[in-house]
Design a protein around this nucleic acid. Sequence first.
DNA 1: ACGCAGCATGACAGCGTTGTCAATATTCCT
DNA 2: AGGAATATTGACAACGCTGTCATGCTGCGT
Lengths: 337, 337
Amino acid sequence: MKKHTITDVAELAGVSIKTVSRVINQEPNVRPSTHSKVSQAIAELNYRPSISARSLAGNRSYLLALLYDNPSASYVTDIQSGVLQTCRAQNYEVLIHPCEYQDPALEKNITDLVHNSRVDGLILTPPLTDSRPLLELMKRLDIPYVLISPSSNSVFEWAVGTNDQAICSEMVQHLCGLGHRRIAFILGHPDHSALANRYAGYQEGLKACGLKVSKQLCVQGFNSFESGEQCARKLLKLKQPPTAIFACNDDMAAGAMKVAHELGLDVPGQLSVAGFDDIPLASQIWPSLTTVKQPIQKMGEVAAELLLRRFRQQSAEKFERITKSQIVVRDSTGPAP
Amino acid sequence: MKKHTITDVAELAGVSIKTVSRVINQEPNVRPSTHSKVSQAIAELNYRPSISARSLAGNRSYLLALLYDNPSASYVTDIQSGVLQTCRAQNYEVLIHPCEYQDPALEKNITDLVHNSRVDGLILTPPLTDSRPLLELMKRLDIPYVLISPSSNSVFEWAVGTNDQAICSEMVQHLCGLGHRRIAFILGHPDHSALANRYAGYQEGLKACGLKVSKQLCVQGFNSFESGEQCARKLLKLKQPPTAIFACNDDMAAGAMKVAHELGLDVPGQLSVAGFDDIPLASQIWPSLTTVKQPIQKMGEVAAELLLRRFRQQSAEKFERITKSQIVVRDSTGPAP
DNA sequence: ACGCAGCATGACAGCGTTGTCAATATTCCT
DNA sequence: AGGAATATTGACAACGCTGTCATGCTGCGT
């Protein structure tokens, strides 16, 4: 199977290479009859334009970079597959670029990525989405980007947002509906300002139920399983321990559940636990975890679409909110004791 | 920060662009004094060669593709980060390419990848590593590749292998040492011939302990959590149920543990459970899971090194065996009842 | 000192596209 | 029909690098 070039196609179709180029790039002003001759030649030779030649001549790389600093493997792979799905359909490729958000070399790292690999645009996930230096750098480099679930004050950025707050409020109301009155909350990592929305939702939910926020019942977690354990220990040691714990992510919820097991507390008989994310773990621990499921893959898809749209300057809508999150009720929540 | 080209560097260093090219590509026959002049100019301008131009002219892309069809997010991300680590050091980039191993369009899919993106080589993970049509396709396309933990009969391929068999044997001996005599095994997906090594190790371990393999105690799983549940149910319904279950991966072990919980069996008091992989879940369920930890990231690193070495025809060693797997004893295994 | 085998360097032609701009067809007016 | 406006096409020069080959230099053996 020989590799064909645009010249082969042009000859076969009996047109100039420029016309073939027009067809490939969906440029206007090609007569339908010509267009079909060319398409046919392309199909016949199974021709694919050379990415390198295209990027050299056209000064773009057909490459996107996906930046992330997220410890959750399932989150990362879900985002990846969403982004890939959109990109494959549009003949873009994706470079993955894990990084560390407090790395002092991050800026140089990204600058090199942009200059060296000549990527056309960047997609960022939390917590990178809320790094002011990074945002400024990207503007300085004049590289298009899209943020995935940035903190709520970013509605003026190109981004795909979520309804975290509303869904968290709903979760609290669900717990309240089960009779719980002392509902604790384990906050997410303070550096991830996007997670603050979840806390806001928790507060909103309590308010909606006519309950008030108790300082004691809100403890600061750091997203990890271990920090979930620590927070749960602190909460369950209270003179008035909560009857339900809502953690800002599933890892911490799982940590809380482990502590409950260790303390001999029956879940959900004596303690209800809820998480957020619906990582695979959630359905695999025992009892399975009530949580919030976000359409993560879909968010990746939409982010890539937004970015590709941004390239084309179809600047219609910069911000898209995905509201398909839903509560998944499993076995870790039940009526208050 | 303007983008510099090879011409800028050549001017600054007072040499021709070809000499700069020689320095960049570490070609021989450059006088040390010239070399340092050029390197200095490169550093001064913070120059990076354009990937597209390089690949167009040199007919290679400095791009690797990582192919996988693996449901375990943590496995995938670990391999990715290993591969990336090696590649970053050598200025290669990585395209991730999830695919489906029984997809009839797979061959076309890969052919397109190779022809279209012009990647220089492929890295495959199980179960793709054991797809004969795929291996043949790659040879036909004449594209270099490296396999990660292929089934044991692939020692003549460019590959990085493991000591799955030995470590599984060891795990069985560990269980036997705890007094277990009825040790069940949940086999991995039959399509993943690489997993057959683990079963072989199980058998070897039994033999080493003077126990014999019982057909009843070996049940066919399919790698998923759910299939682990089913297998465990079958095993625990036996008139002579096992006192220990060794599952071919952690997901199935977790499924087995869930069933044990549901049946009110104490783990490890009445039943010991062991897995393989050490996915994050393993340490987050309760009780935490005894399992085998493989140096997955390292395997990714080595695979990429092997591939880059293959490009350079330093065909010294094609096959590298990583033997750093180790048993992690946690709370799910204990003395036989 | 002479001749020759390397070593070191440079000139220049691609690589396979896209962008620019000019040339040619076609359409739409009046 | 005549002419302007617009649609369609093509010729050709980039793009930034590597490969090839020619040239000039250096050092060695005699």
